[in-house]
């Protein structure tokens, strides 16, 4: 391992982190703006032109707010929970290929892979990291010492455990088709033509993936963990200031991660004609984020028993059926 490798990797990590955190901030702007237009409103429009500085203003406001710690909390786990939910959301991006080989406008001595680490078990790494994300919510719910937080935490952990099964099984179909666990190879297998995208080989797998992905990120219509009408705000009821905003950022980072994995596994990753690969990657992710917001504006929230029934009695058998079908087709 040479010095060059360390420097190049460090620069890649720093760039990705900067882009990711900005993207999280502007996802909130995007959500508020699109939601507003879908509901025939204007949305944020005072801070800067078209309200473009709104995320910055929100961030500043949250930093300067008082960091309240209620009396009955378990202090250590209370402080740990936002960090625990934040880190897994970021880690997923370590294995996502965001571009073809590039040399950053000639700044790097030689062309480097457009991914921080091309693990041979990339898909399993994503499972492993996303399965750790649930701890943030569980710990926040438990350590807050408030019934709303506890109920929110229990709900969200039950939901995430249930939907993780379908989430994992839906990706197995892609692994069966591509015969590899490396994300870089999965992307290169989908290059060349639009019809090489795995969405055409795994339509059912994709549908299960996206439903489970939305449920995993606790987004509408599966946002029971923070059902305002029942639970105030769910697991983060007792949080304020920067600790609260870390939950907020990790929610958006999780949405971006689910979108990025969907793009990589089903929509050809960075592959695309004319425009540079990184631009294609971003376009596809933004399309997914729009889909997320569109769903939120369209569907009402599920009831809790409907959610559980749907996960175990519909998605789980369907995912198993998808695996059987794919395996049978692969052998034929």
């Amino acid at each position: 391992m040479s010095l060059e490798f360390f420097i190049v990797t460090f620069v890649k990590i720093a760039l990705l982190l900067a882009v990711l955190l900005t993207a999280c901030a502007y996802s909130t702007y995007m959500e508020r703006k699109i939601l507003a237009y879908l509901q025939h409103r204007v949305g944020p429009s005072y801070a800067g032109p078209y309200g473009l500085l709104q995320p910055l203003a929100d961030g500043l406001k949250l930093i300067f707010k008082e960091d309240l710690v209620p009396d009955r909390v378990e202090r250590i786990t209370f402080a740990l929970a936002p960090i625990v939910s934040f880190i897994p959301a970021m880690l997923v991006f370590a294995v996502i290929p965001f571009s073809s080989e590039f040399d950053l406008f000639g700044l790097f001595p030689s062309a480097t892979e457009g991914v921080i680490s091309d693990l041979s078990i990339g898909v399993l790494f994503i499972f492993a990291v996303t399965s750790l994300g649930v701890y943030g919510l569980v710990l926040a719910g438990w350590s807050s010492g408030s019934k709303y937080s506890l109920l929110g935490g229990i709900r969200s952990s039950a939901q995430m455990i249930s939907y993780e099964v379908g989430y994992g099984l839906s990706i197995v179909g892609v692994v069966l088709v591509s015969n590899t666990l490396s994300l870089t190879e999965i992307v290169s297998l989908q290059s060349g033509s639009l019809f090489n995208w795995f969405i055409f080989k795994q339509p059912l797998g994709f549908m299960i993936y996206i439903v489970c992905g939305i449920a995993e990120t606790n987004r509408a219509p599966f946002d029971l963990a923070e059902a305002e009408s029942e639970l105030v705000a769910g697991y983060h009821t007792e949080y304020s200031s920067m600790r609260f905003s870390m939950f907020f950022i990790s929610e958006y980072a999780n949405m971006l991660a689910v979108s990025a994995v969907a793009v990589t596994l089903f929509f050809g990753g960075w592959a695309g004609p004319l425009l540079p690969p990184i631009i294609w990657f971003l376009i596809k992710i933004v399309a997914f984020m729009f889909f997320y917001i569109w769903l939120r504006a369209t569907f009402p929230r599920f009831r809790y028993d409907q959610l559980m029934d749907f996960g175990w009695k519909v998605l789980f058998p369907l995912a198993l059926f998808n695996i059987m079908l794919t395996a049978a087709l692969e052998i034929l």
Binding site: L124, A128, L132, V134, V138, W142, S157, A158, I161, E164
Partner: peptide, 19 residues
């Protein structure tokens, strides 16, 4: 697999019961 099965599933259930 150690992370997925133990940390991701079994210990979440432990915490769940404790909660």
């Amino acid at each position: 697999v150690l992370i997925i099965v133990y940390s991701g599933a079994i210990l979440v259930l432990f915490l769940f019961v404790i909660m």
